[in-house]
């Protein structure tokens, strides 16, 4: 209910010391340095916390919508039962080897890591709103997917009406 493109931050639930502690406990010093704000972000449990932390490191945003976090996490887990364990492993890997987020995918691909698929599905989920592929693909976000949010100052899906009805038929000025 009532999420707006720019209101992701407003949707974060009120801080709760216990739930906030969950995420802080997950992050090592290096991961915490990548997303210092996340230490204050409450999460439901440690599995979701790891997902939130990896998500934040990958998409490079300073806040993520709590409801969207849960929806995407649930969908990713439903698609792949080992998703939460893989995500925790990935978070530990980033922390221990101090991996630059921008080099992460390349590194996993080069090493033929079994974790190589994880950043891709997480980034697709957040940026495109899509989880799964082929007939199992589900679109969980469109207006609030980050690819739309990032350009929301100009483009406002799902609308293509930038003037009155039919104005799109006219030649641009």
């Amino acid at each position: 209910m009532s999420t707006s493109h720019s209101a992701s931050v407003d949707n974060l639930v009120a801080p709760n010391p216990v739930r906030r502690g969950v995420l802080a406990g997950l992050l090592g010093a290096y991961a915490a340095s990548l997303i210092p704000w996340a230490l204050a972000q409450p999460v439901a449990d440690s599995d979701q916390g790891a997902f939130l932390a990896v998500s934040a490191i990958l998409v490079g945003r300073s806040a993520l919508d709590a409801a969207a976090t849960k929806r995407l996490y649930d969908a990713l887990l439903a698609n792949d039962a080992s998703f939460s364990a893989s995500t925790r492993t990935l978070l530990n890997l980033i922390n221990e080897r101090k991996i630059d987020p921008l080099q992460l995918q390349q590194l996993l691909d080069d090493e033929k890591s079994p974790l190589a698929a994880i950043p891709r599905v997480i980034v697709s989920a957040w940026l495109l709103g899509i989880v799964g592929s082929g007939e199992r693909a589900r679109c969980l976000a469109f207006e609030t997917a980050l690819n739309a949010v990032m350009v929301a100052d100009v483009l406002k899906p799902p609308t293509y009406a930038y003037g009155t009805y039919g104005s799109w038929a006219g030649k641009p000025g």
């Binding site: 609308t159 293509y160 009406a161 930038y162």
Partner: peptide, 21 residues
Amino acid sequence: FDAHCATCHQAQGQGSFDGGL
């Protein structure tokens, strides 16, 4: 609403940015 209204009246019913809708 999503299928028939939102493309013009927008996702949150706010109308077009220039007030035309």
